[in-house]
Computed example of a mutant assay.
Amino acid sequence: MAYDNICRYLAQAYPIPFASWLLNAEVIEIQPLPTELSLEPIRSDALYLLPNSGQILHLEFQTVPTSSPPLPLRMLDYWVRLYRKYECPIEQVVIFLKETKSPIVYVERLAVGGTIHPYRVVRLWEQELTPLLENPALLPLAVLARTDTPEVLLKQVADRIGRIEEPEQQQNISACTEILARLKFDKNLIRQFLQEDLMRESPLYQEILQEGELKLVLRLLTRKLGNIEPKLQTQIQQLSSEQLEALGEALLDFSVTQDLVTWLENYQ
């Protein structure tokens, strides 16, 4: 499951709660910025312009500490591109999701020769629970906060999700919470406190499922038929979840690309 993608969704859907939490200040006005930066395209997880303070807040979510290129170099690369484009102060925050003893999660700067570039690091397993319970947008992160009593933590988060009045928001927050909780807790423990039916009704969860089904079907087709031409890939991407499931069964009988073409023509 793409845990970073869940966090990217939350940060983009609820920018003010994230900015207020990370800056420890009330943020009233915020302007999301394009996350794809210039030169060789790289995409950040979340970018906000805070007009009142004239600064940019840049967030990166990490499930594992290692990356290529290494995270400190990536943060410098992001900073240079952002400053070149916007010429304003930039607050960079890396949020590590899954607890680890790796020393990498304690590195908070790039230091090479005379070049030193600092950034903030948030290790969620060290964070206090209370601030994350105060806003529905941060509830999915709350399950990864510091605790000695997992059952109490999960119950508190579940109770707060139950108070969300808007149905679709409640479903999406529930889905994000259950998915991120899998980084830390056993599934059986999660099911004791979080309502699985809420997650499955979530439009976001359905989108995640469909994305996973699409990747699986394309991978199976490539193994069966070789490279799939872009035109056919586009047609496959437009299929519904039910159609992807049907294609996943049908492709077992395919032997040549024309079999796929014929199948798609019938469904159209």
Rank of each mutant, 00 (worst) to 15 (best):
L110A: 05
V105A: 10
W79S: 05
Y86K: 03
E40V: 09
P70L: 06
P41T: 15
M75W: 05
T100S: 15
P70Q: 00
T100I: 13
H58I: 02
S53T: 15
S68T: 15
V93M: 04
P70F: 08
P72W: 05
Y48P: 12
T115I: 12
P51N: 02
R81Q: 12
L37V: 00
L73I: 13
V107P: 01
L76I: 01
N52D: 15
Y48G: 07
I56T: 09
L97C: 09
I95V: 15
L73F: 10
E99Q: 15
L110P: 03
K98F: 10
L76G: 02
R74G: 02
N52M: 13
V107A: 05
L49G: 04
T66F: 14
E108H: 14
A46S: 08
I90F: 11
T100V: 13
L47K: 00
V93W: 06
V80I: 14
P69D: 14
S67M: 13
L97S: 05
K98H: 13
W79T: 07
E91G: 00
P89T: 00
Y48Q: 05
K85I: 01
I104D: 00
L39Y: 12
S44V: 13
L49Y: 15
A46K: 01
L73A: 05
Y83R: 13
N52L: 15
V93F: 06
R74L: 09
R109D: 05
E87S: 12
V64G: 11
P72H: 10
S44F: 11
D77G: 01
V93G: 03
F61I: 03
Y48A: 07
S67W: 11
L37Q: 09
A111D: 04
Q92C: 07
V64H: 04
S102V: 12
T63V: 14
L73N: 00
Q92Y: 06
S38H: 14
G113S: 10
Y83D: 03
L73K: 03
A111T: 10
L82P: 04
Q62F: 11
L59N: 01
S44Q: 08
I95M: 09
I104K: 10
L47I: 12
I95K: 00
S44C: 14
V94T: 09
Y106P: 00
V107W: 03
A111N: 04
P65A: 14
Q92P: 13
R43P: 07
R109L: 00
P51Y: 08
H58F: 01
I42R: 09
L82R: 07
P65G: 09
C88F: 07
R109H: 13
M75R: 01
V112E: 01
P72G: 07
L39I: 11
R43F: 06
R43H: 08
F96D: 01
L47W: 08
P70G: 05
P72S: 08
H58D: 07
I104W: 06
K85M: 10
V64M: 10
Q55L: 11
A111I: 02
S38F: 06
S44P: 04
C88W: 02
Q62K: 15
